[in-house]
Simulated scan of single mutants.
Amino acid sequence: MTAVVTMGAVGLTYPGPPSVRALLPTDFVVERGEYVTIMGPSGSGKSTFLNILGLLDRPTEGTFALDGIDVSSLRERQRAALRANRIGFVFQAFHLMPYRTATENVALAQLYSGVPLAKRMANARAALDRVGMSHRADALPKTLSGGERQRVAIARALAHGPSLLLCDEPTGNLDTTTSGSILELLDELHAAEMTLVVITHDPQVAARGQRKVTIRDGMLDE
């Protein structure tokens, strides 16, 4: 079975002057169905690594394949299409449209994928049900708690059936109890064979992963 993520000596240097080596050459593989956490302090290179993983930045060296597709030579339009179809993003800030219902927010993620409206709405309702939010499908974000908003954001990331769920500090804006419920949801998604990469500075969040990777000064270490 093809790994979801395969990186060979991937590195990134930002041009100067002076140039900055943000990520040292890194080998990194995520098998289908794995739950990997990446932990490091501020300035460690987490954001750089996230941007490469999410096809937002191009590495300046090495090779990177997503679902067996070599992304190194793809044009920006092709990279954007691959990102839209195969990666689901969950952020610390929920990024929900304030005047759209939960269902509409989730459906918006598929707006440019060519999926007909009826199918987008059906996918959105199914994703909300998957994260335990079907009872709040018609609610506006301002009427939802922080935990509920993050569940809607996770549903939005799941709606198009991605190969990889990429989470950046998914509990950073939540209290301890609510954080626990979101981490339990991620555990459930992993149990259902979703491939997860969670980037965090929190040791308790990092400990939930099947594999824990640390990053410091642009260098990954398992």
Rank of each mutant, 00 (worst) to 15 (best):
T2F: 12
V4S: 05
T6H: 15
G8N: 15
A9V: 14
G11F: 02
G11N: 05
L12E: 10
Y14H: 03
Y14R: 03
P15T: 00
G16I: 01
P17T: 01
P18E: 03
S19L: 07
S19A: 13
S19M: 02
S19Q: 02
V20T: 11
R21W: 04
A22K: 00
P25E: 03
V29W: 07
V29T: 08
V29S: 08
V30S: 00
E31K: 11
R32D: 05
R32I: 11
E34V: 04
E34D: 07
T37G: 07
G43M: 01
K46G: 03
S47E: 04
T48W: 02
T48F: 11
N51Y: 15
N51D: 09
L55F: 09
L55G: 06
L56M: 09
L56E: 10
R58C: 11
R58T: 09
P59F: 00
T63Y: 10
T63M: 12
F64K: 01
L66I: 06
G68R: 09
I69Q: 15
I69A: 14
V71F: 02
S73D: 12
R75V: 02
Q78G: 09
R79A: 12
A80Q: 08
A81P: 10
R83T: 02
R86Q: 14
I87L: 05
I87Q: 04
I87M: 01
Q92G: 00
Q92H: 04
M97I: 14
Y99L: 11
A102E: 06
A102P: 01
T103H: 08
T103K: 10
E104S: 04
V106A: 06
V106N: 01
A107Q: 02
L108D: 12
L108R: 11
L111A: 15
S113K: 15
S113P: 12
L117W: 15
M121V: 10
A124H: 08
A126R: 15
A127I: 06
L128N: 04
D129G: 15
M133Y: 01
M133S: 07
S134P: 10
H135C: 12
A137L: 11
D138A: 11
P141N: 01
P141C: 07
T143K: 12
T143V: 12
T143I: 11
L144H: 04
G146Q: 07
G146F: 08
G147Y: 05
G147E: 00
E148N: 00
R151T: 07
V152C: 10
A153G: 08
A155T: 05
A155Y: 08
R156W: 01
R156V: 06
R156Y: 02
L158V: 11
P162C: 11
C167H: 00
D168T: 06
N173K: 09
L174R: 00
L174Q: 04
T176V: 12
T177D: 15
T178I: 03
T178K: 00
S179T: 09
S181Y: 13
I182S: 07
L185Y: 02
L186A: 06
D187S: 08
E188R: 13
L189D: 02
A191N: 06
V197N: 05
V197M: 08
V198E: 09
V198P: 09
V198A: 08
I199T: 03
D202F: 03
D202R: 06
Q204W: 12
V205Q: 01
G209Y: 09
Q210L: 14
R211D: 03
V213I: 10
R216L: 14
D217E: 04
M219Y: 13
M219S: 14
L220C: 01
D221P: 06
